[in-house]
Amino acid sequence: MDLAVEVENLTKRFGDFVAVNEVSFSVAEGEVFGFLGPNGSGKSTTIRILCGLLSPSSGHARVAGLDVWRDAERIRQRIGYMPQFFSLYDDLTVAENIEFYAGLYQVPPALALARQSELAEVLELGPVLDRLARTLSTGWRQRLALATSILHRPPLLFLDEPTSGVDPLTRRLFWEVIGDLAHEGITVFVTTHVMDEAEHCTRLAMMHYGRLIAEGTPEEMRTEHVQTMVEVQAHPIWPVLQALEKAPEVVEVALFGDAVHAELRCDLNDAEARVERKLQTAGVAYERVVAVTPSMEDVFVSLARRWERPTAAGADR
């Protein structure tokens, strides 16, 4: 299979600060590649380099078969890029924005019109086509931004937190559209902070402090990084959280929905019994303690905490 993105020892420094540190990975054509990481981990900088908007300090990257050092200009014609804050023309209507971007990407007018009605249908933009972009809420702005980034049918699409601030319905629609694009053979490179969205990706990579710290399919990520995870159900849940927070064998404890997930430093066999004993000793009421497969969020947080910068002592975030 051909590679849509190929990155080798990519590094970007801003003064003393290393935003991207010797990162290597590749993305095959047709993949939905999820690029994860906490705020400030170097995701957006990497994307900007790959889109030909920023030169790397060192290392190599090829995007859609082109070199980011030599062919930055041509890369931009072959990709779609939806940054976190997409600039729409506030004083133009939705339809006019689409038309304008079609012109920028030199899509022939007849084709542009056909694409507009197709996208309006897929993204359910029909009812807002005549509204000024400035009057749209976040969800609708993001729909329009996505429409304008895929107007010219790029073979490779970069989406930087497309669902940030977006409501559940629009979020769902976005992932359906992403799935359909991949089905058509378009490679999608996407970042998100919402870990259940990461499950939609065919492969994931996680960045932290500028380094790539884990990579794999969602299944691999969930099974390879966290050894023992138990779920505790209780009403109220707060005392459970407090009791387990102080336990030495507990690596991490957090609310998961309305339950508590605890990662343990012990074998899976006696994990449930240990937690039950702990809660009983503390005199905390609970309904159920069961060993569970960690969620993607559990994995993400566990990895992030493990790689914490020692000087920051966990609070510098």
Binding site: N39, H193, M195, F300
Partner: peptide
């Protein structure tokens, strides 16, 4: 918690 990463969201 919009736009906040999972670690900060948990905290």
């Amino acid at each position: 918690t919009t736009g906040v990463d999972p670690v900060s969201r948990r905290d």
